[in-house]
Design a protein around this nucleic acid. Structure first.
Lengths: 274, 274
DNA sequence: TTGTGCGTGGAATTTTTATTCCATAAAAAA
DNA sequence: TTTTTTATGGAATAAAAATTCCACGCACAA
């Protein structure tokens, strides 16, 4: 029987599991126990695999899913896949819908950006590798001078980074491209460059990163995809994927990463100075 | 053709992707780009879903998998399903993990900013008055020219706003203060100024707002407190409170507001032009 | 002990998903 | 421009997975 009470979140799922596993017959109990201990496998396994691992028949596992309130295994798996996938809604179509329904008021738009920002932040929490971040901080904390470049969409991030570093009296050069002046010769031995760029990658940023790398300097990159041209430079890459709303993105995650990076550098330098 | 060189880890996969995505024909490139940006979805999706999301036919996606060195999609998916377990926990758990890596580690700091950003976004969603926002959009959509000023901490916001307006072909002047040049005389009749400033309010911003107001121009202000000097100017005030982490803040909410404002202006102008 | 009913295993069926194939279109070479 | 090669879309087919069904076993009650 499909069910009105089918769990829609992990919490609900666990709750229900606890609630009913007591009164289950032997085989179904086995399912419950296995599932409780291997919740993470559900999204990426088949009934056959799971039932075998739990030591029961597929049909038994099936009955278990139904007892849990789902219509079947697929239904249950869907919940797990969705909660894992961090609900990456298609904002482009969502915007279309908004407009179509005439509800494209500024506040509705704002709500979309708020939601996109929230999801981006959550995604970043998952995708940033603590070790890479640590490594980036370590590199930057020991740099005699930090160079920063980020143009177009990345410009706000770069400028905030500069601002934060300046506030903490950390020597930094912002390659802001004003007047097409090129500060590349300011890059000296042991300096580290922070290059920020998103698709479509701006050429100046990529070039500066290549130049720095060519000199043998370390480069810390904040970028969005795996196909970023900075990937090839063996730079230390901090990877942030922002959720787009239509053709725009809110940069919430990227800015949070930038400021966290800056503050961490500041803290690390204070430590080593003492 | 299955292949001796089929990647067996994420690193190998990424490497291969980078290596060959250059030389791919259009559709397969689309696959590569989509995959690069949504690696985490592979484990939990079907070819049909992925290909649709990438905007190609299933058969094209299939060919992509084979180019990557796998015998087919299933083969590729297997790799992702195997390495899946690590990154599955939910948002709360992941934040815990980030924090767990040491009290003042960079990742703990990042977690703080993520959390602060999330709260700021939520607060803003609640505190922005739809009517004020609507009013601001209305004013700005009819302005022959939009002037933008925001310095120091507000500079990233102002620059992003300029960037977004420019992208939408909306006439705007960014009073960026470069070279201490003053563009105040560019403000003409009916132009509207967006002034962004946070405590401690930078004098230049306040002065420009006062000047514009003196000329009889409308001013839309993005600011943080009730005591903001812009409050006295009878400007249209959008009020955002960001949560601080120590002495720093992540600007997530402010930036979301700014981009939403820009997009709303763009949409409104399109409407009225038709 | 013998009937009744829930629990179970396994095979049959249905549905979904992956994969291949081919005709056509586009691009490159001649 | 014509020929040849390469890429593409879409439908046909094959494979795999989910789901149902039913006959059997086992436990408990009469």
């Amino acid at each position: 029987m499909s069910d009105q009470t089918a769990p829609v979140s992990l919490e609900e799922f666990n709750h229900r599991l606890l609630e009913i596993s007591e009164s289950m017959p032997k085989r179904l109990r086995q399912c419950a126990d296995y599932v409780a201990q291997n919740t993470d496998r559900i999204a990426v396994s088949t009934v056959a695999e799971l039932s075998a691992a739990a030591g029961v028949q597929p049909s038994a596992f099936m009955r278990f899913c139904q007892l849990m309130g789902f219509s079947g295994f697929s239904d249950m798996q869907k919940m797990f896949r969705e909660t894992y996938a961090l609900k990456w809604p298609d904002y482009a179509t969502r915007l279309e819908n908004l407009k179509a329904s005439g509800a494209d008021s500024p506040s509705a738009l704002l709500a979309e950006f708020v939601e996109a920002g929230r999801i981006s932040l959550e995604n970043m929490a998952a995708s940033i590798d603590p070790e890479t971040l640590e490594h980036a901080v370590e590199l930057l904390a020991h740099a005699p001078m930090i160079h920063i470049i980020g143009l177009r969409r990345a410009f706000p991030v770069a400028s905030y980074l500069s601002y934060a570093l300046e506030k903490m009296d950390i020597p930094a050069v912002f390659h802001d491209g004003v007047g097409k002046l090129n500060h590349r010769h300011a890059i000296r031995k042991d300096d580290v460059l922070i290059a920020i760029t998103f698709a479509p990658y701006s050429q100046e940023t990529v070039e500066l990163a290549q130049y720095a790398r060519g000199l043998g300097n370390e480069v810390v990159a904040i970028t969005d995809t795996l196909t970023s041209p900075l990937q090839k430079l063996q730079a230390t890459i901090l990877h942030v994927t922002e959720v787009d709303v239509g053709a725009f993105r809110a940069l919430s995650a990227t800015l949070s990463l930038a400021i966290a990076l800056a503050v961490a550098i500041g803290a690390r330098r204070d430590e080593t100075t003492k």
